[in-house]
Computed example of a mutant assay.
Amino acid sequence: MIPNVLTIAGTDPTGGAGLQADLKTFSALGAYGMGAITAVVAQNTRGVRSFVVLEPDFVGAQIDAVFDDVRVDAVKVGMIANAAIARVVADRLRRHARCPVVVDPVMVAKSGDHLLLPDAVAALREELLPLAALITPNLPEAAVLLDCPPPQSLDDMHAMLAALSALGPQWVLLKGGHLRAPHSTDLLGGPDGVLELPAQRLATTRDHGTGCTLAAAVAALLPTTDTVSAVRRAKDYLNASLAAADQLDVGGGRGPVHHFHAMWRGSGEG
């Protein structure tokens, strides 16, 4: 069975992040991708210029249209933009979803531009996180969700993981890339305990859309495997996409990862 996976997210016209990155990731990992747009974002590899948030009822209508017609095997939630959209998305997921939901609490783009309005944090925390099979915050996002300073050590991350789990998701993948250390260690906490998932840092500035891509990869894999295996495979996929990113020549800022590195063999050879 080919899984059908829905992303609920904002857009990126350069294709490296947001809904476009999600659809590429789904396809690369053998899932059929679908998308409901929450916001149209004018951005490129150098930064976010502006965005227009869609009407919450229209976001809900897109989600209804998918679930009324298509079997949905997993959902990935990315940029929700504001509290009203968070509440509508949560309502539709409670109404329709009988499948894993991965929530990537998108708050700030890689460029540093904010993608979540202040009123949305409480709605995200209270409405969406309890519905999630997995949430995938980085350290600054986790600090905002918990209203506390970002962690400065792996021990701090362990304490933060417990607090995030108390917000209601089944699993938490706390991404440690913002810690200053030779390795980037993520923590995966859930019913089976806590796993430390270290990875070697890659020397690249082509990392636009990494958070979107990782969460989308987990969503694509969850219909056919368990959570721990899905996260491990998703991290392997992202690391390979980062390692191959220099094959692409896209933009003059933080370029995208290479979502189709396993399919476009030799694409970077002149």
Results as ranks from 00 to 15, higher is better:
M1L: 15
N4Q: 08
L6W: 14
G10S: 13
D12Y: 03
D12C: 03
G18A: 06
D22S: 13
A39W: 03
V40W: 09
V48D: 10
S50R: 12
V52Y: 05
E55A: 06
D57Q: 14
D57Y: 04
G60C: 13
V66E: 13
F67N: 12
D73P: 05
A74T: 07
V75E: 14
K76L: 11
M79C: 06
M79Y: 05
N82A: 10
I85H: 05
V88R: 06
D91T: 15
L93F: 09
L93Y: 13
R94P: 07
R94D: 11
H96W: 13
C99N: 02
P100E: 01
V101F: 06
V102F: 01
V102A: 03
V103F: 00
D104F: 00
V106L: 12
M107R: 06
H114S: 14
L117D: 15
P118G: 01
V121F: 00
L124H: 02
L124T: 04
R125I: 00
E126I: 07
E126A: 03
A132F: 03
L134Y: 04
T136W: 01
L145N: 14
Q152Y: 06
Q152F: 02
D156N: 03
H158P: 04
L161G: 12
L161W: 13
L161Q: 15
A162K: 07
A163M: 10
L164K: 12
A166F: 07
P169R: 03
G176W: 09
G177A: 06
H183R: 13
T185G: 06
T185Y: 05
L187P: 02
L188S: 03
G189D: 11
P191Q: 15
L195M: 09
A203F: 01
A203E: 12
T205D: 15
D207L: 04
H208T: 12
G209F: 04
G211D: 08
A215K: 00
A217P: 04
A219Q: 06
A220S: 10
L221Y: 01
L222I: 04
T225L: 13
D226K: 08
T227S: 00
V228W: 06
R233W: 07
K235Y: 05
L238G: 12
A240N: 10
G252V: 11
R254I: 08
V257T: 13
F260T: 05
H261Q: 05
R265T: 15
G266I: 06
